[in-house]
Simulated assay, not measured.
Amino acid sequence: MKKLIATIAMILMVSTLIPSWAAANVGINEKYGVPIVVYGGNLSEDEKASVAESLSVEEEAEVEEIEVTGEDLVTYIKDGDARARMFSSAKITRKDEGEGLVIQIVTPDNITQVTTEMYANAMLTAGIENATVEVAAPKPVTGHSALVGIYKAYEVNGEQLDPERTDVANDELEVATELAEDVDEAKVSELLTEIKKQIAEQNPASREDVEQIVEEQLSKLQIELSPEDRQLLIDLMDRIRQLDIDFSQWSTQLEDLSKTIEDKIGTIVNDEGFWNSVKEFFRNLANTVRSWFN
């Protein structure tokens, strides 16, 4: 009996130390409306059901469900292909001002190119702030179409996005995934964020000023790019410079994103061995409890 009491006490103690990922459902948010789930338009019914399960749709008090297609791609991206196949999907929950962007890829094995930080960077460029966004796909895909779905969700929710900004944001995502073929993904996100922070702080007046900022950050972060990739990056950042953005407000969001990326690069919490040890602990604990009844 003493052993039973001690083990139960240990379980209770551990449970208080572990974050509560499944917060109590507080019902419908009357300020911002229900979460919007955007399904890739090329999903089969079985794939759509799989995505809905991954996004925990049934756990919501209520959701609005829409689809994103190649036609939407043309709406938000100048050179978009209406025949594009769309599989990656997302659930968007708007939050209060100041809460920032929280991005989670809930099927990480199936989103093969775009990282959470890449999504966050592109969303800020597009003018989307203060939301929790969960991304999922039923099979391996690059993850690009989820961004278009996020645009559509915001407009369904009554927001008017600047098409120039959404086009540049898509360009940013393309450049980020291309750079990540030769540079670590986290370093690519760090590079993009730091360059954008400097653009916000320095307010460069010309392409030459932007080029200097890019060169400084490449040197600071010790990143080597080919001449072609370097040119892609400069072209992108010069487009960002010319956007109608309140850079004074942008700085805070970029600072938060920068901190997140730094933590990701420097932490060991994302180490697979760490999580395997956590799983092993609970597996052993379950076996111990099971043995009492056998």
Rank of each mutant, 00 (worst) to 15 (best):
L124S: 04
L124E: 07
L124T: 10
L124G: 04
L124I: 13
L124Q: 11
T125K: 12
A126S: 08
G127Q: 08
I128A: 02
E129N: 13
A131T: 04
T132Y: 15
T132V: 15
V133N: 05
A136D: 11
P138F: 15
P138I: 15
P138A: 12
P140K: 09
P140V: 14
P140Q: 12
V141E: 09
T142H: 06
G143F: 07
H144G: 04
H144V: 02
H144D: 13
S145L: 10
S145K: 05
S145F: 12
A146M: 09
A146I: 06
L147R: 06
L147D: 01
G149L: 10
Y151T: 05
K152E: 12
K152C: 09
K152P: 08
A153N: 03
Y154L: 15
V156D: 03
E159F: 15
Q160T: 05
Q160M: 06
Q160Y: 00
L161D: 05
D162K: 03
D162C: 03
P163V: 13
P163A: 04
E164Q: 15
R165L: 11
T166D: 00
D167Y: 14
V168R: 06
N170T: 10
N170R: 05
N170L: 06
D171M: 14
D171W: 14
E172A: 14
E172W: 01
L173T: 08
L173K: 07
L173W: 02
E174H: 09
V175E: 05
V175I: 15
A176M: 09
A176T: 03
A176N: 05
A176S: 13
T177N: 03
T177G: 04
L179W: 04
L179G: 04
L179V: 06
L179T: 00
E181K: 04
D182S: 06
D182Q: 02
V183T: 04
D184S: 09
E185I: 04
E185G: 00
A186H: 11
V188L: 10
E190N: 10
L192Q: 05
E194L: 13
E194S: 13
I195S: 02
K197L: 14
K197C: 01
Q202E: 14
Q202F: 03
N203T: 01
N203M: 05
N203P: 00
P204L: 09
A205G: 15
A205E: 15
A205K: 15
R207E: 12
E208D: 14
E208H: 08
V210K: 05
V210F: 07
V210W: 08
E211T: 14
Q212I: 15
Q212N: 14
